[in-house]
Design a protein around this nucleic acid. Structure first.
Lengths: 204, 204
DNA sequence: GTCTATATTTAGATAGAC
DNA sequence: GTCTATCTAAATATAGAC
């Protein structure tokens, strides 16, 4: 792996572990056993490292969100949500210090908002489709509130885990998925609600 | 008002407006038209300012949470939730940069967790009481998930608002209250659900 | 491409006069 | 209690040799 690539991979690892505000360019260089001068040969600033990582994040997220979610069953939804949570975990430094990071790198604000609004649309589409398929009983305003819940939970579940447990535990993602499912459950028929409980038993 | 008090009030205002990581002791002193030396005469460090403000926060929060919530109707719940959101808004600098602030001031971690667990107990008690009074139809595991939802929403609603709108809007608190109510609504009888919609119309 | 050495800036904090 | 002046430490970033 070329130095430039190694810098990016080490940066994301350190950011995720220690939080972006606590990772200096010197620390990244130290961890790689290269000099700070070398690091700055490849990236003219810390911001540029962050930009590149954010581009990775966007690419991964839009990739997942563009999946043609044709009429999913509960198990598919569980799986799909897990995929999203996994990608969030991969870029958890963005989520754990979201407001701070966006304040520090203002040009990321609009881009992050765009990801969120894409997520919102995808979520809305999934719920509307479930309603049309007769799987979901919810009014328009209920679907609207549900969508907000789903986006809020997915966005802040990792922060919530860190605050409660001091770190991101192994089962944090599965518990996040369950938490999302539990907010949708009341609008499903009874037998599908049981299925969520089965999935909880199986994965949690 | 004595200088010591003025420092605290100016600090909380600047923290809330700009975010704790972006407020230096020099900025606080400048805003007050006093010298940095003077500020350090009253507080030996920035951490000590934060400690004092956090003690304010704890006092206010425990005060609200110890209210004997005897069997609340929907309107009372709405009002009670608004009280909690208002206090969160008063100390929004803690919430907007929660993970960052706790990482920077590690001794606050346990204390914040204690506030959260007190909140969790209060929420659980309210829901259990509503169930016993026949107002809420929810299983134990549903009440457990509901409690998590309520704590998650109250904790991160302000961050969510900032990310989505770039700042905390005037109606952010009322929308937060509604969002919490909407997660409880499916477990209420139909007429009480309508009441939530009426409250939404009235306050939002 | 990589290194060493160093410059620049800024935040937190202290010393000592008034 | 308050001020001016200054120190220290740390983080970002650059210059120039190899």
């Amino acid at each position: 792996m070329k130095t430039r690539e190694r810098i990016l991979h080490t940066s994301i690892a350190l950011f995720n572990e220690l939080g972006e505000p606590n990772v200096t360019t010197l620390l990244i260089a130290d961890e790689l056993d290269i000099s700070p001068g070398n690091l700055y040969y490849h990236f003219k600033s810390k911001t540029e490292i962050l930009n590149e990582l954010f581009a990775w994040y966007e690419e991964a997220m839009y990739g997942i969100l563009s999946v043609p979610e044709s009429d999913m069953e509960i198990e598919d939804l569980w799986f799909y949500l897990h995929l999203i949570f996994e990608n969030i975990a991969k870029f958890q430094f963005l989520y754990k210090d979201l407001v701070t990071v966006v304040a520090k790198y203002p040009h990321l604000e609009k881009r992050f908002q765009k990801v969120l609004s894409t997520k919102r649309k995808a979520c809305n589409a999934v719920l509307e489709r479930a309603k049309k398929a007769g799987r979901l009983n919810a009014s328009d305003s209920e679907i609207e509130a549900l969508t907000e819940h789903v986006i809020l939970i997915t966005t802040f579940w990792l922060s919530y885990s860190v605050i409660n447990e001091g770190e991101v535990q192994n089962d944090a993602l599965a518990r996040g998925v369950y938490q999302v499912m539990s907010v949708v459950a009341p609008f499903l028929e009874v037998d599908r609600r049981d299925m969520i409980n089965s999935l909880k038993e199986a994965y949690l």
